[in-house]
């Protein structure tokens, strides 16, 4: 077991009842990189992230985190290593943004202790980085969907973990805040050597920000590797059943996809999920 392995996943499988969702997934995740998980709706991306975060237990196979099996970690210890930004988020009843972000410090604060100076420093830093300092004392019930989502990202930042798991963390954000959060995540990877594993729906964002991509289809890893090698028109056609052009874009300074819109025969029907498959939220 190499020191350089953050996650070592071996023949992982998962099922909801009798319905298989993930099958025979083996991969390694090394520190200091930005990983993207892409694939069609219902291919098991969210489930995969839940398994990584320890929120669900695999039906078969093993996940080792820093050399130890993931289920062997107490939740609190794991929460100091992994922060999750979930896709859907309740923000409880009647908490303020500040209280929600402070909850990110929960694994760092002893049971009957009050938040210390370091906790408040992390909360301030997270609010500042996400740019929601002005929402600090607002009740979360009065926020818009996008504002709530940014508060949840700030909470994960306040958790100050070496690994960040993002489940479509920008799904309800406009382009300005989407880019802000991806830039921030990229910065955390490059400047602080943190690891980001993100479920990304927008393939252009995935191509622009990720180092490594996992293409999931029907619960299996269809293709994985560096962006330049995997983000190809061929892969997209196989995984999504969509025709596109992929090429280097000078303005974006990244590989980008262009699609043929309208019904010029460019958009084909999605492949019917045979056998495997499921729904994202399940």
């Amino acid at each position: 077991m190499s020191e350089q392995e953050l996650f070592a996943i071996d023949q992982l499988s998962f099922a909801y009842g009798l319905r298989p969702v993930l099958d025979n997934i083996s991969l390694t995740i090394t520190p200091g990189r930005f990983y993207g998980i892409v694939g069609p709706n219902g291919c098991g991306k969210t489930t995969f992230l839940d398994l990584l975060s320890g929120g669900r237990r695999p039906a078969g196979g093993t996940i080792r985190f820093l050399g130890r099996p993931l289920p062997a970690y107490p939740k609190r210890q794991l929460a100091r290593q992994l922060a999750l930004v979930p896709q859907e988020f309740d923000t409880g009843f009647g908490f303020t943004v500040e209280e929600i972000v402070l909850m990110g410090r929960h694994p760092h604060i002893d049971r009957f202790a009050s938040p210390g100076p370091e906790d408040w420093r992390q909360v301030d830093l997270a609010l500042e980085r996400i740019g929601i300092g002005d929402l600090r004392h607002r009740l979360t019930g009065t926020l818009s969907g996008g504002q709530k989502q940014r508060a949840v990202v700030a909470r994960a930042l306040a958790q100050n973990t070496p690994v960040l798991l993002l489940d479509e963390a920008t799904a309800s954000l406009d382009i300005q805040y989407t880019l802000q959060i991806f830039n921030l995540a990229r910065l955390l990877v490059e400047d602080e050597g943190r690891t980001v594993v993100a479920v990304v729906h927008d393939l252009n964002l995935a191509a622009a920000y990720c180092d490594q991509l996992f293409f999931l289809r029907d619960g299996e890893i269809h293709r994985s590797g560096a962006v330049a090698a995997t983000m190809t028109a061929e892969t997209i056609a196989e995984v999504f059943g969509v025709t596109c052009q992929v090429g280097w874009n000078d303005f974006s300074q990244a590989r980008q996809l262009s699609y043929r819109y309208r019904s010029h025969g460019g958009i084909t029907a999605a492949p019917s999920p045979a056998g495997l498959g499921g729904s994202d939220g399940a």
Partner: peptide
């Protein structure tokens, strides 16, 4: 009160 996914990820059993 944040829901199970979040509370698990925040270190609550």
């Amino acid at each position: 009160s944040l829901g199970r996914r979040s509370s698990d990820a925040l270190g609550v059993e």
